[in-house]
């Protein structure tokens, strides 16, 4: 079967199944409507909305990750042809990966992988 109809069918199944489960829950639960309550803050009412500008201390790691993530775009096509292209393709790709790893080592020396 082609991918598209298979995926569409599975999506429809999943949506139907989940919707069905919610319907069943309407009947089986002690009450059909959700209970509105304060979020759990171990015994106190929340002082503010939790949604906030979260201090993401590992933002430097995300930049490193992006470099490698873009590299993955080359990786998949490369995987298909590496056996045909031979040693040259292997050397070129791993030289490139080596450069990226050098970046990782540099970032590590700069303390990007440590944040606590």
């Amino acid at each position: 079967m082609d991918a598209l109809p298979a995926v569409a069918t599975m999506l429809a199944l999943a949506a139907g199944g989940i919707a069905g489960l919610y319907l069943v829950h309407q009947v089986t639960a002690v009450a059909a409507d959700p209970l509105r309550a304060s979020p759990f803050v171990s015994g106190s009412p929340p002082a503010q909305h939790a949604m906030s500008r979260f201090h993401v201390r590992w933002y430097t790691v995300t930049l490193l990750f992006l470099a490698f993530d873009v590299e993955m775009l080359f990786m998949y096509p490369w995987a298909l042809v590496v056996a045909d292209k031979g040693a040259g393709a292997i050397v070129e790709m791993f030289a490139f990966l080596g450069v990226l790893m050098a970046g990782v080592v540099y970032a590590w020396r700069e303390g990007a992988l440590r944040w606590s």
Binding site: S42, G43, R53
Partner: peptide, 14 residues
Amino acid sequence: LKLDVLEVTLGPVL
């Protein structure tokens, strides 16, 4: 940086 500060209470029911 200027970032949000949340007041979080840990305990007594934890």
